[in-house]
């Protein structure tokens, strides 16, 4: 338990972690609010008839939170600790304290899951409550299973970011890759226009865990989507763990 406690402290002691926590928690509700006038008009005009995804649909934009958290759990270990000693990194202190590398990775993943699951629960609750307030009877409350799936998707995305950061050993590559893909231009989504196989990329398949109708080229059942997403995460975590175990620090 001690390593998990230490990892929770380390994570929550980083200013960047709080950027991820605040951004991730607030973005989805804020976007929902900003979209409200447009959505209301669409409902009134009858152009938006399927309202079952209202609220849940906006959760995707908040993924920046779990992505940042997942990445910095690793990248903060590799950041140089000062100009005096360019090669010096926190990882030295970390491995001196917990030299069993697998145990360390499990502790890090556990701390990350605890923080992100809590964040996801708060954000999902806030977003869905806001949806009820804004749209009332137009927005039926989603089934509990979909809410749980949304929280699970956030957590799996954080672990995916964690695994990619473990492989790349820095923050820039995974942050650029994942944030651009989840907010600016979804390369995965563009790929689905080319091949149906792209529907099984983590961010496309993961969304189908809790978003029903939407415009996915290949419809995948929520449970199948969850299993595919989990498989991605496990595969990348295994690669990251093997590399971390073998590399010299």
């Amino acid at each position: 338990m001690s390593p998990v406690r230490a990892e929770l402290r380390k994570l929550l002691g980083l200013p960047t972690a709080w950027v991820g926590l605040v951004l991730g928690t607030l973005t989805a509700p804020v976007v929902l609010l900003l979209n409200a006038p447009y959505t209301r008009r669409a409902i009134a005009a009858g152009t938006l008839t399927d309202t079952s995804d209202l609220g849940l649909r906006d959760l995707g934009i908040g993924l920046i939170g779990p992505i940042v958290l997942g990445v910095i759990v690793v990248s903060s270990e590799y950041t140089s600790t000062g100009q005096d000693a360019p090669g010096a990194r926190q990882l030295t202190a970390t491995l001196a304290a917990v030299p069993d590398r697998l145990r360390l990775l499990v502790a890090k993943a556990t701390a990350l899951v605890l923080v992100v699951a809590a964040q996801a629960a708060v954000t999902t609750a806030a977003t869905l409550t806001l949806t009820q307030v804004l749209y009332g009877e137009h927005a039926p409350a989603p089934a509990p299973a979909r809410v749980v799936a949304a929280i699970l998707y956030w957590t799996l995305t954080a672990l995916l970011a964690y695994a990619i950061a473990l492989i790349s050993r820095n923050g820039i590559v995974p942050l650029t890759l994942l944030i651009i893909n989840s907010s600016v231009v979804s390369v995965s989504y563009l790929l689905t226009k080319v091949t149906d196989l792209a529907s099984y990329l983590p961010d496309i398949v993961g969304a189908q865990m809790f978003i029903g109708s939407a415009d996915f080229p290949v419809e995948i059942a929520p449970v199948t989507a969850g299993l595919v997403m989990t498989a991605w995460v496990i595969a990348l975590l295994v690669v990251g763990a093997v590399l971390f175990e073998r590399r010299d620090v």
């Binding site: 406690r5 402290r9 600790t81 000062g82 005096d84 000693a85 010096a88 926190q90 030295t92 202190a93």
Partner: peptide, 24 residues
């Protein structure tokens, strides 16, 4: 070893506390 091992955003006390916590 090289450097302090403390992440530059952490205070000296915060660094020492997480290290202490990791070993109970």
């Amino acid at each position: 070893l090289d450097g302090s091992g403390a992440h530059r955003a952490r205070t000296a006390r915060a660094h020492l506390r997480w290290v202490a916590a990791s070993n109970g």
